[in-house]
Design a protein around this nucleic acid. Structure first.
Length: 427
RNA sequence: GAGCCUGUAGUUCAAUCGGCGGAGCGCCACACUGUGGAUGUGGAUGUUGUGGGUUCGAACCCCAUCAGGCUCCCCA
């Protein structure tokens, strides 16, 4: 044991079963993205630390990113997010791209955090952004893509909800309460923590931050007002667009949604699993109007969201929404009767593969019993046996493993018989 | 970065007060020398996460360390 080298803390190993889950998420992500006309792209996995230091709180970047010196002495970072790379890529080709640009990506990211349930140091994330347009209807489209994904994996509106708020709306409400601009950060933080604290404690914490009793009462009033969106033209248009897109049953206004990110300027949203054990957001995003200027581009607004695979995987498992795992992608197993007939089995398997089937052939002679047990464990659908009797008659034995029926057919029609069985099992 | 809990066979978990480390499931073999799932019989499996200490004696107590979990922090 002591000589075994453990995995690096917070990293993940993808055994075939976990890999199947990751690919399942990837396929659904791709389908949702593409159905709205988004293009797949990717950025570098390693970036200069300065790319992130520019726009996020430096302490966070330094504390929670994988940063190290390369052999040339430069400080590099395993990317903790994609948006800054995207902003740079867009800025570099701003003159030649066609806008609005709709891009999506699914790849690995790293954050140096305390691993917990739903949070590892290495994770995959879906990013989807629309750049070059600034309208509530564009925001609605992003939310609709997210909802489409949720629906496609079986997370119905009863199981998952996307909560929406608007930074500009909150700012104007804060203005009305005469909360100074210096306190806005603290107040956002305060709002974020509301669900985690007892209300009395939260109140005294708010007063400690320097809010007056009147401001605190006003703030509580705002946070409890779920009709507040009607004061915002942006949100009114957003909800109307969501209705047209057919996803409004997924979306609710919630003035408590703030999101930590500094760069959000308008619509913000977060999706939650409403019934499970994971209290973390399963996806989140919003509108950012000033991001490109920070990396040297002309002002260009955008809206985007991200979803991690770790929380999504837990949610799907808890809701039993994963497709059955099949240990082998090949539904057909060709057995090996005895050593002298191994080549016969190999060439039969090759024939079937050329005909278009996915075929597993036992790679050494073994008891048929053992081979059938193997077929069972691998969840093969059909077992093909080629023994001395069959060879003498130029036939093969084909067994439907779902119902145990075996037929002996001419070798030339083996493919056809197998196809028929597989087709019947599909239905 | 801080606090708390956990770590025993492939796996899930036992092991009385510090006194011989076991069970279910799984695995292997046989019943069954041309056929899986069921059943029965038999069998294998361990440096008790790692390193040190206390003790006649440690899975159990102490220290350190690694990993996982919960909470705080944070969540780009």
């Amino acid at each position: 044991m002591s000589s075994k080298i453990q995995t690096v803390k917070g990293t993940r190993e993808f055994y075939p079963e976990e890999m199947a889950l990751r690919n399942f998420i990837y396929e659904k992500v791709r389908a949702a993205s593409q159905s709205f006309g988004y293009q797949e792209y990717d950025g570098p996995f390693i970036e200069a630390i300065d790319l992130y230091a520019a726009k996020s709180g430096e302490e966070l970047v330094k504390k929670q990113s994988f940063t190290f010196q390369d052999r040339g002495g430069d400080f590099v970072t395993l990317r903790p997010e994609l948006t800054p790379s995207l902003a740079r890529m867009i800025a570099a080709k701003q003159g030649e791209l066609t806008f609005p640009a709709r891009w999506w990506s699914f790849g690995p990211f790293w954050r140096y955090e305390q691993p917990q349930k739903g949070r590892s140091r290495e994770f995959f994330q879906w990013n989807l952004d629309m750049l070059g347009v600034n309208s509530p209807e564009a925001d609605a489209e992003l939310i609709a893509v997210a909802a489409t994904f949720l629906r496609s994996v079986g997370l119905t509106p009863e199981l998952a909800t996307i909560y929406v708020n608007n930074r500009r709306l909150m700012d104007s409400e804060f203005d009305a309460l005469a909360i100074s601009t210096e306190k806005r950060m603290d107040v956002s933080n305060l709002v974020d923590r509301r669900s985690k604290m007892e209300s009395a404690k939260w109140d005294s914490y708010a007063l400690e931050l320097g809010l007056s009793q009147t401001q605190l009462d006003g703030l509580k009033n705002i946070l409890g007002n779920f009709e507040l969106w009607k004061n915002s033209e942006e949100l009114t248009r957003l909800f109307s667009a969501l209705e047209a897109l057919g996803v409004s049953e997924y979306v609710k206004f919630d003035p408590n949604i703030m999101r930590g990110l500094l760069y959000y300027t308008g619509t913000v949203f977060e999706a939650f699993d409403t019934s499970g054990s994971v209290k973390r957001a399963i996806l989140g995003g919003g509108r950012y109007d000033n991001l490109l200027a920070d990396v040297g581009g002309q002002p260009l607004s955008g809206v985007g969201f991200a979803m991690g695979d770790v929380v999504m995987g837990i949610v799907l498992k808890e809701k039993d929404l994963l497709p059955e795992f099949t240990p082998s992608p090949a539904p057909v197993l060709v057995t090996v009767f005895e050593e002298s007939l191994l080549r016969e089995s190999y060439s039969l398997a090759a024939e079937l593969r050329r005909a278009g089937l996915k075929v597993l052939c036992y790679p050494e002679p073994a008891k048929l019993q053992k081979q059938f047990k193997f077929a069972d464990k691998m969840k093969s659908r059909v077992a093909v046996t080629l023994g001395p009797d069959e060879i003498a008659q130029n036939r093969v034995a084909i067994k439907n493993l779902a119902n145990g029926e075996q037929t002996i057919v001419a070798r030339a029609s083996a493919f056809e018989s197998i196809q028929k069985i597989l087709a019947s099992l599909q239905a």
